[in-house]
């Protein structure tokens, strides 16, 4: 490995290269100043936002999220959080595209159930087809099912984003084996989206060979979000480097001394 390799290991999504493999959400922070400070500490270039009705007639002068996180400085990834069918998701992203001046990169998530926030895969597939046909570049939240992930890739999604565990649960990677199968078959970037709880979870995702990690609650709901954002940045980088370096083979129940066995005084 030489130095240029370290510099050029970018995450490429829909033909665009990004230096950071950590994508972060902007929800659940105390205020926009904390949001901005945490995102700066995370080093993330792609940040997700939700699309919601404006509060008509109230607080006309209140600050706007995109004033703190301008699209000139970040790649804004609008999501469809809260959508439970394909129609609402497509409608939401068309509004997002208008709001962001024609921006095509989006995060599709169609939910199935309020208790689990598990993806509704039949509706996700319908929405993905419609969005791809309409010119969107779709990064898609999905179940950790290799068959569904492949189907989304074949529809034309630019990245597949299986959950590690339930959204906002912080339970970490529950099924690394499924992720492994998805990674083995995928020809588009695979990002773990949802379920990361702490830095080691992010590092494990990257060590498995994931192309990136998307998280929100793990940073926003840490006691110190800015410090956790910094930890996540390092974890994603460390996990990626470890993956690229190629770990040593595991030797089950078989020790191997690190120091020479020759020349011992006894």
């Amino acid at each position: 490995m030489n130095a240029p390799d370290l510099i050029t290991d970018s995450l490429v999504i829909a033909g665009k290269a990004y230096g950071s493999r950590l994508l972060v959400g902007t929800g659940k922070y105390r205020n926009f100043a904390e949001t901005r400070a945490a995102i700066d500490a995370s080093g993330a270039e792609i940040i997700t936002v939700a699309i919601r009705r404006v509060n008509i007639g109230q607080n006309a002068g209140e600050p706007n999220l995109l004033d703190s996180l301008p699209p000139t400085q970040f790649t804004i990834l609008p999501n469809t959080a809260g959508c439970y069918n394909a129609k609402d998701a497509v409608r939401t992203l068309r509004l997002a595209r208008e709001l962001l001046d024609g921006h095509a990169l989006v995060k599709l998530e169609v939910l199935a159930d309020e208790a689990t926030l598990f993806p509704n895969m039949p509706e996700t597939l319908i929405a993905a087809k419609e969005l791809v046909a309409d010119g969107f570049q779709v990064m898609v939240y999905c179940s950790d099912d290799p068959i569904q992930a492949k189907a989304l890739e074949e529809i034309g999604c630019v990245a597949v984003m299986p959950l590690a565990s339930l959204i906002g649960s912080g339970m970490g990677i529950l099924n690394p084996w499924n992720l492994d199968i998805i990674l083995d078959r995928a020809r588009v970037p695979v990002l773990v989206d949802a379920g990361i709880g702490t830095a080691s979870d992010a590092a494990i995702a990257m060590e498995l060979g994931c192309d990136g990690v998307l998280m929100n609650t793990a940073i926003a709901k840490a006691k110190n979000p800015v410090l956790m954002a910094s930890a996540m940045k390092k974890a994603v980088e460390a996990g990626r480097d470890a993956f690229r370096a190629g770990r040593m083979p595991k030797k089950i129940y078989q020790a191997s001394p690190s120091s020479p066995t020759e020349g011992r005084i006894s």
């Binding site: 902007t26 929800g27 659940k28 922070y29 949001t35 936002v49 404006v54 509004l95 998307l214």
Partner: peptide
Amino acid sequence: LEVVIAVGGG
């Protein structure tokens, strides 16, 4: 009519 903005989300 729907009038929407971007808000914090994950």
